[in-house]
Amino acid sequence: MKTYHIELLVRLKTADTVALTAKNTLRRDMGYESVLLDVRREERWVIQVQAEDLQTAEKLGREFAATRIFVNPNKQTCVLKAAESGQAKLSPQKQDEGGPYEVGVIVSYYQDGKAVSARDALRHTYGYGGRIGNVERGVLWKLLLSAQSPDSARKTAEDIALTSSMNSGLLTNSHSQTYIVL
């Protein structure tokens, strides 16, 4: 048995009003009109699971996705990835030179009750028991930025990610949340 990470990326089928509002606020009220081209958003779950091999892990992942916990098929679709722990899969998108660049930002709560209840539901309600390790939940923001270079796009994403004052940053309140720029 090895530990695998199942990543579920859950996206709304309908217009994402949260992403739209974030985009409009950043562009209209916070001065990103010329650099921020688009904002998209996915809910990201990472489930640690014990499995015999990658195939089994993927099969389990599909089972998890079919529970009622993570995906609401009425309005969401889901992409699933499984990987062995330690071979972390988070990496920035490959981009064409000259941009625009898509930069991902993952925001999660320090204490997330929903992640804990999802873990408990998998363990107890759905009977996966001790196979299930940690469950993490976060929002993956995808910022489409026009910039001179990937580095400068990341710098802009960083500024957008961390709220430091009334005038700067939006996606994370670092007193209750944490973030990673991919």
Partner: peptide
């Protein structure tokens, strides 16, 4: 709180959060 007016020890700076409740669902 989100606008940095509270607590306002350094006015305008984000110094706190109002995080999701614990204790109830």
């Amino acid at each position: 709180v989100e606008s940095g007016m509270i607590p306002g020890v350094n006015p305008g700076e984000l110094e706190m959060a109002l995080a999701p409740n614990t204790g109830t669902s």
